[in-house]
């Protein structure tokens, strides 16, 4: 570092008011890089929508068509007719509807235990819980599979949803525990003084204050479940039970009635599958951005 302690004070003043890294040229460079980068990042999304509205002849020609000559909205109908995509989407929504409340409820309860009670062995359990994040899922996968197989629970949603109702995962618990720790304990204690039971404290004092963190957890669980491929792929083998993520792979590979290329239809399916997440983002954007940070994930 070029440190010059003996600079005359007259030269110091203008330097001192200058903000870090805010030189004019630097700022222009930042805009240029961000704009070019932004276009590169947005292009695949544009390309999905554009491809989904073209004919396969347009897609499979050696001149690029950036936009369809005539938007083929019928491609979207074709997706729903070629494979049970509506059913798959409904299944994904059903899995979300089962796992989101489960995660929100049981992760809050567990977080409450870790944040507010001084029970025997608490630190050991807490470290073990964090440790589960490190262990690859494959370690428990095979016995779990055999267990659910023996209980004849293959082709049911039980193996896919039970975890969400049993704590919802270490990450969610940690997130909520950090959030509860940031709520002053005086509030609980005042309620206890007024004769509230621990259930009452959680329900009437903490949960109302935890709304931003609970929303974040709900959104993260929605995203996780919507993305989940592996568990439904191994536990389900009837097509009508598949969620969209597994259905999408099926649609990519199975023989259809026509042997025509299906890139335009795959792009339509990708757009359909992404739309609910985009809508969720538009509605709850600030929780995507702020929630993670607010919940104490910043180091």
């Amino acid at each position: 570092m070029a440190v010059t302690y003996d600079t005359p004070s007259t030269q110091l003043a203008p330097v001192a008011v200058q903000r870090p890294g805010r030189s004019h040229a630097g700022k222009i460079a930042a805009y240029v890089i961000l704009t070019i980068g932004g276009i590169i990042f947005a292009f695949p999304l544009f390309w999905t929508v554009s491809s989904s509205l073209q004919t396969w002849q347009e897609l499979r020609s050696f001149t690029l068509h950036f936009l369809p000559a005539v938007p083929q909205w019928g491609n979207y109908d074709k997706v729903f007719n070629a494979v049970p995509f509506a059913r798959w989407m409904a299944n994904s929504f059903l899995l979300v509807a089962i796992t989101v409340p489960g995660t929100v409820i049981t992760a809050s309860i567990t977080a409450y235990a870790f944040a507010r009670f001084d029970f025997f062995g608490k630190n050991v359990w807490f470290i073990l819980m964090l440790g589960t994040m490190m262990i690859p899922t494959q370690v428990t996968l095979i016995p779990q599979y055999i267990f659910f197989f023996k209980l004849k629970l293959i082709n049911t949603y039980v193996p896919l949803t039970i975890g969400a109702w049993l704590g919802g995962g270490a990450f969610m618990i940690f997130l909520l525990r950090q959030f509860i720790m940031s709520i002053p304990r005086d509030l609980d204690e005042a309620a206890v003084m007024d004769g509230a039971s621990p259930f009452r404290v959680l329900w009437s004092v903490l949960l109302p204050l935890m709304k931003p963190a609970l929303t974040t957890v709900a959104i993260l669980q929605f995203m996780n479940e919507w993305n989940e491929f592996f568990a439904p792929f191994i536990y389900l083998n009837r097509m009508q039970l598949f969620p969209a993520a597994v259905g999408m792979r099926v649609f990519q590979n199975i023989p259809l009635e026509t042997t025509e290329p299906r890139e335009h239809l795959l792009m339509a399916a990708a757009a359909i599958m992404t739309l609910p997440v985009i809508l969720l983002f538009i509605v709850a954007q600030r929780y995507f951005i702020q929630g993670v940070v607010l919940s104490g994930l910043k180091i």
């Binding site: 980068g37 932004g38 990042f41 947005a42 695949p44 999304l45 390309w47 999905t48 491809s51 995203m223 919507w226 993305n227 491929f229 969209a244 993520a245 597994v246 999408m248 792979r249 990519q252 890139e263 795959l266 792009m267 399916a269 990708a270 599958m273 992404t274 997440v277 985009i278 983002f281 995507f288 951005i289």
Partner: peptide
């Protein structure tokens, strides 16, 4: 703008990138 790709489900993203 930069956050949007995160929202695309992995399987959809694979199909898109293969195209």
């Amino acid at each position: 703008l930069f956050f949007m790709p995160t929202l695309v489900p992995i399987v959809a993203s694979v199909v898109l990138w293969k195209w």
